[in-house]
Design a protein around this nucleic acid. Structure first.
Lengths: 204, 204
DNA sequence: ACACCTATGACCAAATCGGTCAATACATTT
DNA sequence: AAATGTATTGACCGATTTGGTCATAGGTGT
């Protein structure tokens, strides 16, 4: 084992065990935030003794930063530039999100919660990691979008808001649905919005 | 002071102070739930000593139940039967929500959080209070809706989902906006959806 | 049998928990 | 001004939980 490699023991675990730990931690931290989530909460959720967590991550802070970095990397690995059609980009983004969320269900809730919680002693570290990201949210996916397809009255932020809110809302409510149903449902909602947003000539 | 009246001292406070306590408690409990929110968290948020809270509500449990009852009553007081047009009902519901949220900003987040947290020793008491409610969510407001105005393909749950998700999404993002802007923004979003949902003949 | 590493529960001091209480501050009555 | 009743407060309580340590038990390869 490397001398300075705190996480080495964790990385040597089987992927299955690693993911189960990561997912439980995502879920716990995502629900109650950094400060209010105790290490024993997470240990209980995973089903391993607390001391193992400290072997893997050193400190609670180390664990949280690891998770944040992990989530950033997981997203960055999937992000690609999208086509010029807005709703194709939405579909692409949804696909990515669904695919990632299938492996790490609590990840996006966790990511949202990280930036909400201020006044903690890790906030600066989080921002440092976040500033180093190149993917910068949805910018990459949408950079090629042809906004000319939209009706004159509809501006970009409105469109993007409506779409993301419906996606979020659907995501919050889904329970025990398989990926195919989810994608089909979302496509239906998106087609609904498309009819409101696009000029007639682009509604195939 | 009445013998069995634990809350009497609290009720005798000025409305301003009472509301500031209620709002801080809504916000704290809404964010981290019953178990993870400490009485000192709330006291600090209000700006009064913790011991005062215990004078007002007796116990933490008592405080939480009071808040829940209070929120139920506040909603029940505003709810009325809506007209037959779906989007007029939405507007009515939004008006109610905005009006209530103007006085108690954290109330709805609190209400949502109450039913999410299971395994606490107050869950049964909450359900008991909740079961006594007559307003039962949005049923009353929407009971007169004429669903025939919708396009054949659009079913009710889809419409209601899209509308509520956009409302929730907008609500989550709003910061320092005055009520008028909020209502205008939401009306714009709703008109967008209306065009997707209604048969042509009903689009004025 | 050995060495090597991981997993684990008992354990720690420090902080925090829900809750109490005697003392103070304050307004009202006499 | 003195006396009275109440509201407010910070100091304080035992109990629990906190982040974190560590010696030991257990498994694996040789």
């Amino acid at each position: 084992m490397g001398v300075n490699d705190i996480n080495a023991t964790f990385e040597n675990l089987s992927e299955e065990k690693r993911n189960s730990i990561i997912n439980a931690a995502f879920s716990c931290f995502g629900k109650t935030g950094y400060k209010k989530t105790s290490t024993s909460d997470i240990a209980k959720a995973v089903g391993i003794p607390k001391s193992s967590l400290f072997k893997y991550f050193g400190t609670k802070r180390g664990m949280y930063l690891y998770l944040f970095q992990f989530a950033c990397d997981a997203v960055a690995m999937e992000v690609v530039e999208g086509p010029e059609d807005f709703f194709e980009c939405i579909k692409l983004a949804t696909d990515i999100k669904v695919r990632v969320a299938a492996r790490f269900p609590g990840m996006f809730d966790f990511m949202i919660s990280t930036l909400e919680e201020k006044g903690t002693d890790i906030y600066d570290d989080l921002k440092a990691i976040n500033d180093k990201r190149v993917d910068k949210g949805l910018d990459v996916i949408f950079k090629n979008v042809d906004w000319g397809k939209f009706k004159p009255g509809v501006d970009r932020s409105v469109a993007l808001n409506a779409v993301t809110w419906i996606n979020e809302g659907y995501g919050r409510g889904k329970k025990e649905k398989d990926i195919k149903t989810i994608c089909a449902d979302l496509e239906m909602y998106m087609n609904l919005l498309k009819q409101s947003f696009y000029k007639e000539e682009y509604l195939k």
